[in-house]
Design a protein around this nucleic acid. Structure first.
Lengths: 319, 319
DNA sequence: TTGAAAGCGTTACCAG
DNA sequence: CTGGTAACGCTTTCAA
């Protein structure tokens, strides 16, 4: 057997006697032959490798995205380099260069904020780049969760289960996510529905409730929180004041951060950004680009979904 | 210039006129020349790539380990494939095969439990394997956090700040970690110091406190918890009963899971398993093995450290 | 239907 | 001190 015959047999190329092909395949399987991807890549200019660049240390957003990418690409024989670059431009460059040297077929950038870019310049790279849940260069392929959609989902749900006096407690105003969620909230809840901006922490959720309940005003009966941590703080603060969740007040979170949402008492109804799905799409897109298929550039906002648990009541209306 | 001369100039090999070498280097830098790692790897049998295999979905343990590995190896030009295999043996095999095809220089296995193996057989692989925070094959190189040491640190700290009636609330008895921490606790706190086994959740921390405080017995004044989630449940339950932490009772956690430990009110004093350091060592070890340097096989237990926050008081004794 | 040869980008070795 | 050549493991093209 010559190498070339074997190659053709294994790859289904060329024409040859069916039994020759079968015999070769059988032998290859028997001795556990596995082609060297490096050699193959040298020739084909495809390494079946992509890089995932992130500055999200806790991996709160990166892990689901990574899982989606990996799941989508493993079927195509593609492996993923994970590079955590913090906010260090030098480290970013080192990792990008290392990936390029290794001839990655493409790079996916992700992070902890959709309105900030990573501290590395990924424009004019010799490989395709897709931005997922981080800010991309103008004219790039970018995927993001649709914050407005998520916020609308949450707010409408509160109205649907009969809540009238809605309040939104969220993170800092200099986060585009916070602003967009607040706008969508007002659109659905009414122009003058109150919005409180603070930070993304449990402590702020607490503080906001203190503030509201210590004022003389009418209390809200439905609270939409900018993330699950705030929601957790809110739920805890309400319980400590003897306000019943969900009987007196319904609370919705944002992120569906399992470990937080499921451990809250009661477990949180919350918006899920479908980050795994986002990762999957990002993976398929770099792959398409790497294979020379065209992808319309621009910003794609992927829909969110509402995960109903117990912090709102009205779960019977779930469909 | 011939290719071979350029190669030697860039790699510092062979002998040649210094100015020739300089000129070549300058030109290379100018045109942004970067050697193709695939071609290089084909020849040298080194891909400057390692694989990290994990079944830890939330990445709670994997992320710090990964960060350590990456940090240690980036200086050596090594990139890391991250493969999340859940508990699916088939998926595990697919990922391992993909990595082997790509000629990884080594594989690091990690997971969510030190007393369980990943659902893949990594024995007799053609590349070195290091186990970090997961159970390894007999005779393998394995790194783990020293649970006994961590528990001793926590218990001694409670005694040191003057606590007398110590209690340990931990996870299920079928976790070796839970058993070893409990044993070390008893060794330091006294043979008959009480230990409660439950699950690794906030809810269990709560429940344990209910149970203890509803019995007529003498109440503990120092509680060492098996993880930070339990500790959080404990602290919350105590606060809700009007028991002051740390004035009346000191609480220590385990894991130093920032997002949990720092958000607890008051923030948790807790044991840190130094997972990043563990990852760093694991990385350097696979690298050594890949380069043919010998590493004594066996189980290495790395020391923990105590991170002092506010849930114990006595922080003035910190040194 | 099969095999020989060229070439992918690099490094190591040996001649010049 | 420099350049040609072989080799790494594979795929593709062309000739037998």
């Amino acid at each position: 057997m010559s190498v070339s015959t074997v190659s053709k047999a294994l790859n289904g190329n060329g024409r040859m006697a069916d039994d020759t092909r079968e015999r070769i395949k059988r032998m290859a399987a028997e001795i556990g032959f596995r082609p060297n991807a490096l050699a193959r890549g040298l020739l084909s200019n495809r390494s079946f490798t992509v890089g995932l660049l992130t500055n999200d240390t806790y991996g709160r957003f990166t892990l689901p995205v990574m899982a989606g990418i990996s799941e989508a690409l493993v079927d195509h024989g593609v492996s993923v380099f994970l590079c955590a670059i913090e906010d260090d431009p030098a480290l970013g460059k080192v990792h990008v260069d290392a990936m390029l040297d290794k001839q990655v077929d493409g790079i996916i950038a992700t992070g902890k904020r959709v309105d900030r870019s990573l501290p590395v310049d990924l424009a004019r790279l010799p490989v395709p780049v897709v931005y997922a849940f981080t800010k991309g260069e103008p004219g790039s392929v970018t995927l993001t969760a649709d914050d407005r959609h998520g916020a609308t989902l949450a707010t409408k749900w509160l109205k649907e289960i009969g809540r009238k006096r809605l309040l939104h407690i969220s993170g800092p105003k200099d986060f585009v996510s916070a602003v967009e969620r607040a706008e969508a909230f007002r659109e659905a809840a009414g122009r003058d529905a109150p919005v409180l901006h603070g930070v993304w922490s449990e402590a702020w959720g607490h503080e906001a409730i203190e503030r509201i309940w210590n004022e003389g005003d009418e209390k809200p009966d439905g609270i939409f929180c900018g993330n699950d941590q705030i929601a957790r703080g809110v739920v805890d603060a309400l319980r400590e004041r003897g306000v019943k969740v969900p009987d007196d007040v319904s609370v919705v979170g944002f992120d569906n951060w399992e470990i937080m949402a499921a451990q809250t008492r009661p477990p949180l109804t919350t918006v899920d950004m479908n980050l795994k799905e986002l990762g999957r799409e990002a993976g398929l897109m770099v792959l398409a680009l790497a294979e020379g298929r065209a992808i319309e550039p621009g910003l794609r906002k992927l829909p969110c979904k509402l995960v109903v648990r117990e912090s709102c009541g009205g779960a019977d209306r779930r469909n």
